[in-house]
Amino acid sequence: MLELRLIQGSLLKKVLEAIKDLVTEANFDCSATGFSLQAMDSSHVALVALLLRSEGFDHYRCDRNLSMGINLNNMSKMLRCAGPEDIITIKGDDGTDTVTFMFESQKQDKISDFEMKLMDIDSEHLGIPDAEYQAIVRMPSAEFARICKDLGSIGDTVVISVTKEGVKFFTRGDVGSANIVCRQNTSVDKPEDSTVIEMNEPVSLTFALRYMNSFTKATTLSEVVTISLSSELPVVVEYKIAEMGYIRFYLAPKIED
């Protein structure tokens, strides 16, 4: 028996919009810890890890660990039928091949049940060890999205370099090149507008912009994005989900042949 009630149902709608283009099918895992997902894109270049902690739900019942294979496009279609203010409850049962999404309006005067078919998904779960990153950049998520979009119109790859001077985003394409430097900036009243750079060592890595631009679909979930970089490791682009958990995107670098 599974019953997860989320007052701020819009969070789940935003999560689906953020990942459905990167990953088409995935297993959602439900345990005492929370509702989670780990999945790679079809080319195994990027990985998304989602956690919505049980404490963040208004009601959380999960009698035993359950894995639900879901087509994310279909789930997104169903969640789009929920109003922006609706409360969403996810209901499931052991041994059934469906999951139900219940949408309640704030005034409780409209209740909708959407039943969706589950599928068997043979997915590989990867162990991601904790790593010490050479540099961690925290910046406004909208600013990062803007940079990725702008650079994506010029080139296919971005070189992200962190030095004492700041974080530099560079691309080159047929029409020319672009270089954007963001300096550390903490002298603002709103901490979410700051750019903070923690650097142990300078680092420079190259990534495909197509994936970076896909990650920025999570911008609506958090005002701040954290970018963790180490040479020889995938970059981690993390959006915290208020009070509940996170979406982390891992992207393998492009390396010199």
Partner: peptide, 14 residues
């Protein structure tokens, strides 16, 4: 020329 690494080259099945 740069080659695209894959996630599975860094993280192993758990």
């Amino acid at each position: 020329n740069r080659i695209q690494m894959s996630i599975t080259q860094f993280y192993r099945s758990s």
